[in-house]
């Protein structure tokens, strides 16, 4: 069977379409919040929260309840907690994230161990598996992505001002505390909706890679968001196809593809692009 026939055959399966919808939804929503986090030097919050999501999923699986919904509530709460820890306990963002992530990962691992070790379900949550994406996941991903995109679009100017310079935003009358809390909630939501396709350990890459790829080209902030979203959608589509053909975990395949694209763009900018 040729590669093209194999790909066409793949899209005769419902799971492939479901993966595509979830992938595109999470690619766009994570590209919408990525620039704010990367430029506020808070990009590792996605990584930290994915560890928290792992603990949430472990709890969900243990009690046999919807793991993603359970995880979303915990992740959003912890995301706001990390922010408050950063503001009030005089901890730098990276230290607050590191502490929380380590405790959550330890908790999740102990829970999995007590429940009888890592089973297949937990592994698919760690690295992403397109086979496990259900119809409900598609609805949830699309709904929450639309919410994330709508919130970022409506608060765009305030978020941009705060990211560029927090003091100037405060002087202009922007409530930066409230805005940071909204951003923390959006990150929590985005991390959880991306878990099915990307896995808890790799979802943060979808927040960081598209932004830094876009930053190699763009001069403006709006352009960075648009380029990040478009490139991330293409990478997700090709990554999912690659994952199907090569029988690799979807999250890992997408991250590797992101890595190659970034390297290609970086090399082009450094070596080939006329100055």
């Amino acid at each position: 069977m040729s590669l093209l026939q194999e790909l066409l055959a793949a899209f005769s399966y419902g799971f492939m379409w479901r993966a595509l919808f979830v992938g595109i939804a999470v690619a766009i929503s994570s590209s919408f919040i990525g620039p704010f986090l990367v430029l506020k030097r808070f990009s590792m919050i996605g990584h930290g929260l994915s560890h928290v999501a792992f603990a949430g999923i472990a709890v969900g699986l243990l009690f046999n309840t919807a793991p993603l919904i359970f995880s979303m509530i915990i992740v959003v709460a912890v995301s706001v907690f990390i922010l408050k820890l950063n503001e009030t306990a005089k901890l730098h963002g990276d230290a607050a994230i590191g502490l929380t992530a380590a405790v959550a990962m330890a908790f999740g691992t102990i829970l999995a161990s007590v429940a009888g070790g890592f089973n297949v379900d937990l592994f698919s949550f760690l690295f992403g598996s397109i086979l496990t994406i259900q119809r409900l996941d598609v609805y949830l991903s699309i709904t929450f992505s639309i919410i994330v995109i709508a919130v970022v679009t409506s608060l765009y100017h305030d978020l941009f001002t705060m990211t560029f310079e927090e003091d100037f935003a405060k002087v202009s009358g922007i409530n930066t505390k409230r805005l940071n809390t909204v951003l923390a909630i959006l990150v929590g939501v985005t991390v959880v909706i991306g878990i099915r396709a990307m896995g808890t350990l790799l979802i943060s890459s979808l927040i960081i890679f598209p932004t830094i790829i876009a930053m190699q080209f763009s001069r403006g902030f709006k352009a960075t968001i648009v380029i990040a979203a478009v490139s991330s959608v293409f990478i997700i589509i090709f990554g999912l196809m690659g994952s199907y053909i090569l029988d690799w975990p979807s999250g890992s395949t997408i991250v590797l593809l992101n890595g190659f694209v970034f390297l290609g763009v970086y090399m082009y900018n450094r070596i080939l692009r006329p100055q």
Partner: peptide, 15 residues
């Protein structure tokens, strides 16, 4: 930081 001059200047009014 990816921000053009007109984005930064516009910030003064839009914020």
């Amino acid at each position: 930081f990816p921000a053009t001059v007109d984005e930064v200047v516009g910030m003064g009014l839009l914020s």
